[in-house]
Design a protein around this nucleic acid. Structure first.
Length: 562
RNA sequence: UGGGGCGUCGUCAAGCGGAAAGACACAGGAUUUUGGUUCCUGCAUUCGGAGGUUCGAAUCCUCCCGCCCCAGCCA
C-alpha cells in the first residue's frame, strides 16, 4: 500500500493552541492524553476519521498517548460485531492504541462507587417518577422545570433504593438515579440529569452482572478522569453537556480533564449520520456497510480509498467550531494526488467498439513497450500485444463531431497510445443502424506512437486493447451516492439517491496482464480513472474492478457547454 | 421568543490591534504519446450588518441580523 507510514502530526488548530498553552503553564505536568471514544453501535464513517486523526494526531504531535475507549453503556444498541469492526477500521486508518484499549464497561464497579459517593454527599437521588412525568417536570426551553416529589428522599433511603436497582429488584422504568442540581437551570442538561437507568439486559462484555447502566454524561467524564485524560475532544453538540461534565467531576472531587468541542464533518453528496446510514443498509439501497458507495471507512476501503489519502484529507479540512460542508472534490483530490504518484498505468476499454485495421497483416501480432508510470521511471515498462483488430472506447469516436472533439472521426487520424497512428475510413453498422466496427488504416512509420518523418501531428491519443488478447472483466463505475450536495436539506433524503451511483461495465476489455491483478491493488486505467481490484468479489484469474474516482476530465466539462 | 455555540472567497480555513496565508473548486495560458500530470496566471480594497474606541480594527466595545445545538431512562 502506497503512502503507508505518513501519519505525521496534523496542522495546528485552535485545539493545539489550547494544548500549547497548557504545556506552557504546566497544567497537566506536560502530559497529553486524548481518547477516541466510539459507542459500538454502528460502523465508523469518514466523520469519525476526522476525530480519529485529530485525537491520535495530537497524541503523536505531543508525544502523548491516545486511548481507544469503547463507550459501551447501552446494551440495547451495542454489540461485539461493532467493536471488532471499529478496531479494524482504526488500525486500517493507520493508528495504534498500543495497550490503551479500554471499555467503559470495565469501569462499572468504580462508576457505581462514584454514584454511591454522590448519593452520600446529598448530590444524587433516586427518582420514582415515570418517564412521562420526568419529561413533564423537566419544563421546556423557556419554562423552568419542577422538582420531583422524591427529590428530598433521605440519603439512607436513596442508598437502599439504588442498591435494589442494581440487584435487579426493581422494574425497568420504575425509577432512575438523578443528580440533584437545578430544575430551573436555563441549561436543560442541568435539570437533574439522569445518571443511571435500569436495563435488565445482558451486556456484551459484563454479561448479566448489571441491571443498571450509567448514562453518557455520568460515565464519560468519569472514564476520562479514571484514564487521566488531559484533553477530552468531542463534537460540538456536546457543548451544553460540558457544564455537567465539570459539575460531576467537581462534585466527586476527582481528577479533572478538560472537554474541548469541535465541529463535526459534513461532506457534500453523501450523508454522515449513523441513523441514515443504517437506513440505507437496512432498506437495501446499498449492499451493506461496506458498499463502495458508502462513506463508511469499510466502504471507502472497499472502494479503493487509501488510508493515507483519508488522513491527508482530514488534515487539510482543518478543525474549527463552525458548521461546515466540505466539498467531496477535496477527498477525491487527495486520493488522485496519491494514486497519480503510485498507481501503475494500464489500458482498459470500458465500453468497447471494434476497430479493424485494414492494411495490417492478418494473423500478425507484435509486441509494444508501454511505460508503467510516467511519474516514476523506476516502475519500468511492460509489453502489450497489438494486432489487426483492436477495441477502442465507444466515446472516442464520433461520426459527426463538434468542433472541440479531438478524437477519432471519419477521415480523421489519431494516435493509439504506444502503437500507431490510425485513420478512420469507414463505419460498419448492423441492421438497426448501430455502429459495430470502424474500418481504419495505420501508418507503419508511427510505431510506438512516434511522430512520423513528415512531422504530421495528431490531436488525440487513444487507449486501446488488442481484441484477440484482451480479457473480459467486470468493472463497476461508482459515482456519488446522492445527486444533490446536501441530501438532508429538503424532504426525504432518500429521494435524492443518485440512480446512477453504480453502473456496471460488464463487457469491458482489458489488457491481458490484468488477468492476474492482485486483489486490493490500484491501477490507473489510462484516460478513465483510478481503479481498485475488489478484494471481496475478485477471484483468481477473474478480477473485479471498482472505479475509485475518475481522472480530472476537461473534455467532460467542455461537452457540457456544447 | 430560556440557555449555549457559530458567522473571513463558491467550499474548507489561517489570522488573536499594524494593515486578508494556504488548499479545493473555478477561469485563462504553457508543456504533454493520458483532453491526466506538471508549470505559470487570475480569483475577498475586504472579513454577516450598523455604529463606536483607536494614529490604525477581521481582530476591542455596543446594538442588530442570520445559521446551528439542547426539552432520551441515546451517545
Amino acid at each position: 500500500m502506497p503512502g503507508e507510514n505518513n501519519t505525521e502530526a496534523p496542522s495546528g488548530n485552535f485545539i493545539t493552541h489550547i494544548i500549547d498553552e497548557d504545556l506552557e503553564t504546566g497544567k497537566y505536568d506536560g502530559r497529553v492524553v486524548t481518547r477516541f471514544p466510539p459507542e459500538p453501535n454502528g460502523y465508523l464513517h469518514i466523520g469519525h476519521a476526522k476525530s480519529i486523526c485529530l485525537n491520535f494526531g495530537i497524541a503523536k504531535r505531543y508525544n502523548g498517548t491516545c486511548h481507544l475507549r469503547f463507550d459501551d453503556t447501552n446494551p440495547l444498541k451495542e454489540s461485539i460485531e461493532y467493536v471488532e469492526s471499529i478496531k479494524e477500521d482504526v488500525r486500517w486508518l493507520g493508528y495504534d492504541w498500543q495497550d490503551h484499549l479500554y471499555f467503559t464497561s470495565d469501569y462499572f464497579d468504580q462508576l457505581y462507587a462514584y454514584a454511591v459517593q454522590l448519593i452520600k454527599a446529598g448530590k444524587a437521588y433516586v427518582d420514582s417518577l415515570t418517564p412521562d412525568e420526568i419529561r413533564e417536570f423537566r419544563g421546556t426551553l423557556n419554562t423552568p422545570g419542577k422538582e420531583s416529589p422524591y427529590r428530598d428522599r433521605p440519603v439512607e433511603e436513596n442508598l437502599a433504593l439504588f442498591e435494589q436497582m442494581a440487584k435487579g429488584e426493581l422494574e425497568e422504568e420504575s425509577c432512575v438515579l438523578r443528580a440533584k442540581i437545578d430544575m430551573a437551570s436555563p441549561n436543560i442538561v442541568m435539570r437533574d440529569p439522569t445518571l443511571y437507568r435500569i436495563r435488565k439486559k445482558d451486556h456484551h462484555r459484563s454479561g448479566s452482572k448489571w441491571c443498571i447502566y450509567p448514562m453518557y454524561d455520568f460515565a464519560h467524564c468519569l472514564s476520562d478522569s479514571i484514564e487521566k485524560v488531559t484533553h477530552s475532544i468531542c463534537t460540538i453538540e456536546f457543548v451544553n453537556n460540558r457544564e455537567l461534565y465539570d459539575w460531576l467531576l467537581d462534585a466527586l472531587d476527582v481528577y479533572h480533564p478538560q472537554q474541548i468541542e469541535f465541529a463535526r464533518l459534513n461532506l457534500s453528496y453523501t450523508v454522515l449520520s449513523k441513523r441514515r446510514l443504517i437506513q440505507l443498509v437496512s432498506e437495501g439501497h446499498v449492499s451493506g456497510w461496506d458498499d463502495p458507495r458508502m462513506p463508511t471507512l469499510s466502504g471507502l476501503r472497499r472502494r479503493g480509498y487509501t488510508p493515507s489519502s483519508i488522513r491527508k484529507f482530514c488534515d487539510t479540512i482543518g478543525v474549527a467550531r463552525r458548521d461546515s460542508m466540505v466539498d467531496i472534490s477535496l477527498l477525491e483530490y487527495t486520493l488522485r494526488e496519491e494514486l497519480n504518484r503510485f498507481a501503475p498505468r494500464v489500458m482498459a476499454v470500458l465500453n468497447p467498439v471494434k476497430v479493424i485495421i485494414e492494411n495490417y497483416p492478418e494473423g500478425r501480432t507484435e509486441t509494444l513497450e508501454a511505460v508503467n508510470n510516467p511519474e516514476d521511471p523506476s516502475m519500468g515498462s511492460r509489453s502489450i500485444p497489438f494486432s489487426r483488430e483492436i477495441y477502442i472506447e465507444r466515446d472516442d469516436f464520433m461520426e459527426d463531431p463538434p468542433k472541440k472533439f479531438f478524437r477519432l472521426a471519419p477521415g480523421r487520424e489519431v494516435r493509439l497510445r504506444y502503437a500507431y497512428f490510425i485513420k478512420c475510413n469507414d463505419v460498419i453498422r448492423d441492421d438497426s443502424g448501430n455502429i459495430t466496427a470502424l474500418r481504419c488504416t495505420y501508418d507503419p512509420e508511427t510505431r510506438g506512437g512516434n511522430t512520423p518523418p513528415d512531422g504530421r501531428k495528431v490531436k488525440a491519443t487513444l487507449h486501446w486493447v488488442s481484441a484477440a488478447h484482451a480479457i473480459d472483466a467486470h468493472v463497476r463505475l461508482y459515482d456519488h451516492l446522492f445527486n444533490v450536495e446536501n441530501p438532508m436539506q429538503s424532504g426525504d433524503f432518500q429521494q435524492h439517491l443518485n440512480p446512477g451511483s453504480l453502473v456496471s461495465a460488464d463487457v469491458s476489455k482489458l489488457e491481458p496482464g490484468l488477468k492476474d491483478a492482485e486483489p486490493g491493488s490500484h491501477f490507473q486505467f489510462e484516460r478513465m480513472g483510478y481503479f481498485f481490484t475488489d478484494p471481496e468479489d475478485s477471484s483468481p484469474g477473474a478480477p473485479v474492478f471498482n472505479r475509485v474516482t475518475t481522472l480530472r476530465d476537461t473534455w467532460a466539462k467542455i461537452k457540457k457547454t456544447l
